[in-house]
């Protein structure tokens, strides 16, 4: 049987709802992936631990709280500490353009999808990069 792509969709940070994350999770499932969904208010430590146990290829972070410039580096650092930097971290949410650039340039995110991105684009990126 073919290898199945596994993705962890996480909603770190303190803001209240996870509608966006759920839409992404369902969309990736409909694109044929196994999506582990962990719910609201995840700490970076929880995200990384789940990513390791679930042996995912990709971690998708939905961030609306504005804390992206601390969350992405923290998660990357924890992945590295756990010998798991092969797991790709992608993100979505509203972020200033210069932040997106910095996150990608510094290698803290493999790709950032801004609110205009379609599910097809996200799924395609994952299929192309895993």
């Amino acid at each position: 049987m073919a290898r199945k792509i596994r993705v962890l969709v996480a909603k770190p940070g303190l803001d209240g709802h996870d509608r966006g994350a759920r839409v992404i999770a369902r969309g990736l499932r409909d694109a044929g992936m196994e999506v582990v969904y962990t719910g609201l208010h995840q700490t970076p430590e929880q995200v990384v631990e789940a990513a390791i146990q679930e042996d995912v290829d990709v971690v998708g972070l939905s961030i609306l709280s504005g804390a992206h410039m601390t969350l992405f580096p923290k998660i990357c650092e924890l992945l590295r500490e756990n010998d798991s930097e092969d797991i790709k971290v992608i993100g979505g949410g509203t972020m200033p353009e210069e932040d997106v650039k910095e996150l990608v340039e510094k290698g803290w995110a493999a790709q950032i999808f801004t609110p205009g991105a379609t599910l097809e684009q996200i799924a395609k990126w994952i299929y192309d990069n895993v």
Binding site: K4, A25, R26, L28, R29, D30, A31, G32, M33, E34, V35, V36, Y37, T38, G39, Q42, Q46, A50
Partner: peptide
């Protein structure tokens, strides 16, 4: 249909 799955049991095990 898609072969994908939404695995949400961890939500209750945080």
């Amino acid at each position: 249909i898609s072969g994908g799955a939404l695995l949400g049991d961890r939500i209750r095990m945080q």
